[in-house]
Design a protein around this nucleic acid. Sequence first.
RNA 1: GUGGCUAUAGCUCAGUUGGUUAGAGCACUAGAUUGUGAUUCUAGGGGUCGCGGGUUCGAGUCCCGUUAGCCACCCCA
Length: 442
Amino acid sequence: MIEPRTLKGFRDHLPAQALARERILDVARRVYRSYGFAPIDTPALEYLEILTGKGSEETDKQLYRFTDHGGRQVGMRFDLTVPFARFCAQHIATLGTPFKRYHMATVWRGENTQRGRYREFMQCDFDTIGTTSPVADLEMVLVVHDLLRAIGIERFTICVNDRRVLGGVLEVLGLTGRSTEVLRSLDKLGKATPEAVAEELGGHGLPSEAVGRLLGMAQLAGPAADVLAKIEPLVAGSATGQAGVAALRALMAGATAAGVPGERLAVDPSIARGLDYYTGIVLETFLDELPTLGSICSGGRYDNLAGLYTKQALPGVGASLGIDRLLAGLEELGRLSAVETPADVFLVFFDETRLADYLRIAAALRAAGMAVEFFPEAKRVGQQLKIAAKRGVPAALLVGSDEFVAGTAQFKHLATQQSTTIDWHGDLNVLVDAVHSLIVSH
RNA sequence: GUGGCUAUAGCUCAGUUGGUUAGAGCACUAGAUUGUGAUUCUAGGGGUCGCGGGUUCGAGUCCCGUUAGCCACCCCA
């Protein structure tokens, strides 16, 4: 016997989890479309050269790569942004700009696993490319906000920053060009103590005064307007830094105008994002009840998405929902439903001689838009009801020999065990309408 | 990729300084109840103790390796 098992970091999805996943995917699709983002898809496998050298060397290490049967060096996509860059280089001429797309697909990363971190997971990206308009930046925040609310999450914080703010501070301090290492160290705030981060920055050879100012900036918190007011003097004299502060200010104003509550949107100067290609606004989203889970929705603005593949400059802005991490979080919070079936009604197979009648009833209910599970065996009624209840079907429809004679049916809510008798006199339309209204009413 | 913790039935866990046929609750199957599930009773199935070596008269228990999960680093969804 071969031991049934799955690879490290790769998972099966049982119905309860798969249903939750599909529900979130449906919501994301609906929200993205509501802003006019159009769906695209790209291959899971790309030429290796397309994928390497785009992100950091870290992403190159995490890439699943192999030689295909034709001797080609290929890799599996580790995000949806790089394939999108290639996609744009090939197709932007026919698509035109600005172009808005969403892409929900599986990606693979050969890194070590942890809670909410898998080797195979799904991302739900949306991007607007071909425009530098701050409206697109604002829309990104609005989409993230709408999305989480539509999923049913109320307590979350979208943390925004602008890469140019840190760039400006470094410029003022005479440390231009040191941004990568500084970003990485500052990003540890929240996990490591400020002292440890200060020590690490000092280890990079930064003067202690600079370390103090960087830490002071990164630890700013509170209402966005206050944070921005405190950042402003730190970037005095740097056009770049001032542009960043202005962009954040405009973003906050726009979000407020669009109805995003202030407590869900924060300016957090320590948000850096590891990916090198971000150049403007960056964003990370955390569940208030589970901040250690990490960001469940991240993104930002980039100057030139496809510079490696085309001469046409394609600025853009976009973000990605990490649905698998979010699901891990919702599960931990006990927010996932245990229902294992999409069925609305469980039709009990009562009387074997009435099979044709059951098939007719099931067909009529389905035609009216209801999901019907008709049990395939004329087993004991108690057992059928037990199975239905265990799977979480909301209601059962029982039509036995006596009911057929009387022209009735029993509609039973499985959670409450309450039965309602339906008089349908053999008229399927009456039965369907009755079942439909009983389902809706509960 | 590096380090730490963990691994016993489908699930949650007992298992005493190594000592006979490894237990419990829940779940599952069948019956009591030939047409109504979460209660009750009865019976039953299910574990090569993650896997592979070693020490020992004897290993679920000790040692080494390995795989997987969790945690930290790194990075990130």
